[in-house]
Design a protein around this nucleic acid. Structure first.
Ligand SMILES: NC(=O)c1ccc[n+]([C@@H]2O[C@H](COP(=O)([O-])OP(=O)(O)OC[C@H]3O[C@@H](n4cnc5c(N)ncnc54)[C@H](O)[C@@H]3O)[C@@H](O)[C@H]2O)c1
Ligand SMILES: NC(=O)c1ccc[n+]([C@@H]2O[C@H](COP(=O)([O-])OP(=O)(O)OC[C@H]3O[C@@H](n4cnc5c(N)ncnc54)[C@H](O)[C@@H]3O)[C@@H](O)[C@H]2O)c1
Lengths: 213, 213
DNA sequence: CAAATTTTGTGAAAGGAGTCACAAAATTGA
DNA sequence: TCAATTTTGTGACTCCTTTCACAAAATTTG
């Protein structure tokens, strides 16, 4: 398993394989071939094997892969075998939706804190829909609470004008991962990771495909 | 402008250029070089020129690009110069958030209908936050209303178990574009375009980067 | 007006990612 | 036990994307 640069596309596919394997495991399937898995994920069978080959040998020739083992191995590769502790910052429309997103629970992503800036109708409110309710705190407690609750990922759902400032706070609080939903490109120092999710870029993409087909 | 297959990455970047140019235009900047634009969008200058070259010649040698013209040209390329009429299906947490997403208005994406399945607390409710309020209708009116309101894109925010069925309804209603937020892979016939947005795949990606840096 | 400067557009080179094809390993069955 | 079968892991090949590098075009300056 010597080091090599792993294509980002490979990581995205591993995530898909993982979701497929989860379904298969629940369905009681024990063994799967690269061809079957590829089929389900709409990719090439060699692609599946290549993707896995970056990280080692997981299959048995003539047999395939043990669903349960491969599922665990991929989770280990992705780092999704551990529980990730997250905070949501900006509890408006989207932030509230994320707070009650059930799939985060099923997967290993857990929202353990929520922050907003002052609006009295929000601060102190408790999101009850999740397993454990989360109280919305004032943003000025971010640093303190981030340490206390060992927050590792921050989800930014503030207006775009505030997004970079919030990111800076997260960096200061040593929250190393940021997922930003505001339509602004977030910049973070070396050692931190920020990903932007641009809804309108996705729509622009769709619009292009619709216009040209 | 002879035909060539356009890389999807190019389309994504064009969308980014477009957003940058919008900001520049508002800031009153008149001319921009490929190097400047590249810098802002964190890409290579030759990349900017190559991306544009797929669609024609838009610059003036020795000068650069006229911000306003390039902005318009890119919008024309992307098909985002026209207004796109959208429906949201599944008015729960995420669906409601999308209904009040202001940037859709600023961009040229307009939500003109909302559908849910029966829960009395939702049907008939009106989202007031947008420019024009949108009444939530029962899903069984989808086909009829889609025609009437000339809906071109459907945003699926139902539980994953319902997502494919809803997609089938959209296809039947001849809504050609689908953006699916449920964690299921949507399949549509030739001539339709469906994109899935998997939140946990994005998080898996982040988790991987955090685990390996 | 011509030389110097700027910056585009693009062919060629380099670099990555995906697919093919087959030897190697494991299993099955006679 | 050994041939037939299955399916992995991987080198080689193809295809696609990005970057480089420079001629061509426009502008500016002396
Ligand atoms: N609504 C959507 O469906 C949607 C979709 C995609 C992206 N987005 C983006 O997500 C962000 C939030 O959208 P929204 O519709 O939920 O907006 P919103 O106005 O409903 O919510 C924003 C929240 O952020 C809080 N806030 C503002 N400044 C803050 C700060 N410095 N620190 C902490 N909290 C702060 C506000 O009090 C508010 O509660 C926006 O950037 C938007 O562009 C929204
Ligand atoms: N909440 C989030 O932040 C979030 C984030 C990413 C993805 N998602 C996904 O988006 C989807 C919606 O999430 P949510 O949290 O809003 O769930 P939700 O349960 O709050 O909302 C789902 C809505 O869909 C409606 N519905 C169910 N079946 C329907 C049908 N056949 N036709 C029309 N409407 C129907 C329900 O009545 C409900 O109002 C889920 O698939 C979820 O996995 C949610």
């Amino acid at each position: 398993m010597k080091y090599q640069k792993i294509p980002e596309a490979t990581i995205r596919r591993l995530s898909r394989y993982s979701r497929c394997l989860e379904v298969m495991e629940q369905a009681g399937e024990e063994v799967v071939s690269s061809a079957q898995l590829a089929n389900r994920c709409m990719v090439n069978a060699a692609q599946v094997r290549k993707d896995l080959a970056y990280f080692g040998e997981f299959g048995i020739r003539g047999v395939g892969y043990y669903v349960k083992d491969l599922f665990n191995d991929i989770k280990k590769i992705l780092g999704s075998n551990k529980e990730w502790r997250m905070a949501v910052i900006g509890i408006g429309n989207l932030g509230s939706a994320l707070l009650s997103y059930k799939d985060f629970l099923k997967q290993n992503y857990k929202i353990v804190a929520a922050f907003d800036i002052d609006p009295p109708q929000v601060i102190g409110r408790v999101s009850e829909k999740l397993g454990k309710p989360v109280e919305v705190l004032h943003i000025n407690r971010l640093k303190e609470v981030a340490k206390e609750r060992r927050i590792e990922i921050g989800l930014i759902t503030t207006p775009p004008s505030e997004a970079q400032a919030v990111a800076d706070l997260l960096v200061e609080a040593e929250v190393r991962g940021i997922l930003n939903f505001a339509p602004t490109q977030i910049v973070v120092p070396e050692g931190f990771v920020a990903k932007d999710v641009f809804f309108t870029t996705i729509l622009d993409n769709l619009a292009y495909l619709l216009s040209n087909n």
